[in-house]
């Protein structure tokens, strides 16, 4: 196997996920080279060949052009496997590259198996093992699933020349405004998930948080629906927290939520579904209706 790893770079910085790609290739014991749209002063520390497209010309976002550049690098590298992170960059680019190479795409790999790759299915309740039926394959890795490689050495850079092409126009970045609560510092967090059922019930979770002396948080659907403000959101697109106690109320445990709270010291989950994937990170899973359990626990704590 010969892999081309598509590194990530944003707002002038190399992203750490780039080292997860290298970690994956090392775990596979695959020969690898890298591709990056970046500036020369932000290169990964790795002893490998690197195809570099200058970000000033290629721009941080231009999938039509980046696809062409990746195809060129893949050809030069003689790569049969192209690897991305399953991120906003990766899931946008990978299918384009896969189609151009007539290659199978394997999305969101969490583990390497003897005969193929392991992927989550049905919101992480199940796992699927798959393999490509094609000569070439495109793989995206779940962020955080593979240990990042150690940073050492310097790449041998080959610059790619750029022929302008574009289907989309990039208008600029916008940063979500910072919120008022910093959940990152809270020692106790009680979070409301969609399982609380309706907006009024978020107050029930807030009350429990108060009774425990902590802050309340929320999963994304609760925030998207406007039941809680965005600064309460825990997860990849919200805040990353590591409290002493995290109470997940009616939260299924999707990977993007777990990414934000799995460093919590003790996790208590309340869920009507015994099989909910939150059970994989929880210390205790209480099988109960949160609408009954939360007020009862609050009352007992206050009484």
């Amino acid at each position: 196997m010969k892999a081309l790893l598509v590194g990530e770079y944003r707002e002038g910085k190399l992203l750490e996920t780039t080292y997860e790609l290298i970690g994956f290739a090392q775990q596979l014991k695959a020969e690898f080279e890298l591709f990056l749209v970046a500036s020369e002063d932000q290169l990964p520390q790795v002893e490998a060949k690197l195809y570099l497209a200058d970000v000033n010309e290629a721009k941080e976002y231009n999938p039509a052009l980046h696809k062409q550049l990746i195809l060129e690098a893949a050809e030069k590298a003689g790569a049969d496997t192209i690897v991305f992170i399953h991120s906003s960059n990766g899931w946008d680019l990978a299918p384009r590259v896969a189609l151009a190479l007539s290659a199978a795409q394997i999305s969101e790999v969490v583990e390497i198996k003897e005969d193929g790759y392991l992927l989550p299915a049905c919101n992480a309740k199940l796992r699927r093992t798959v393999k490509a039926a094609t000569g070439k394959q495109v793989i995206t890795l779940q962020a955080g699933a593979f240990m990042p490689a150690e940073q050492s050495g310097a790449p041998q850079v080959e610059k790619l020349s750029i022929t302008a092409t574009a289907q989309t126009e990039f208008l600029g970045y916008e940063q979500a405004e910072a919120g008022e609560v910093d959940l990152g510092k809270a020692e106790i967090i009680v979070s409301a998930g969609r399982g609380v059922g309706k907006p009024e019930n978020v107050a029930m979770i807030e009350a429990l948080a108060k009774a425990l002396g902590g802050e309340y948080g929320a999963s994304r659907p609760v925030v998207d629906a406007g039941w809680a403000p965005h600064d309460r959101q825990v997860g990849t697109t919200g805040q990353t927290v590591s409290p002493k106690l995290y109470v997940a109320c009616g939260i299924s445990g999707a990977i993007q939520h777990l990414a934000g709270m799995k460093k919590s010291e003790f996790v208590l989950a309340i869920n009507t579904d015994k099989d909910a994937p939150i059970g994989e990170v929880a210390d205790v899973l209480v099988v109960a209706d949160i609408k009954q359990f939360a007020p009862a626990l609050t009352a007992k704590l206050e009484g």
């Binding site: 007539s102 290659a103 199978a104 795409q105 394997i106 005969d115 193929g116 299915a121 992480a124 309740k125 199940l126 796992r127 699927r128 093992t129 798959v130 393999k131 490509a132 039926a133 094609t134 989950a269 015994k274 994937p277 059970g279 994989e280 929880a282 210390d283 205790v284 899973l285 209480v286 099988v287 109960a288 209706d289 009954q292 359990f293 009862a296 626990l297 007992k300």
Partner: peptide, 29 residues
């Protein structure tokens, strides 16, 4: 033709699995 082959589908291997508590709400509390 399909380009991807599914070899198997399974429940995840339980890692550090949670202690599961079931029963009456007052007892659970």
């Amino acid at each position: 033709e399909a380009r991807l082959t599914t070899l198997s589908l399974a429940y995840p291997e339980k890692k550090g699995s949670a202690q599961i508590l079931e029963g009456d709400v007052a007892d659970l509390v």
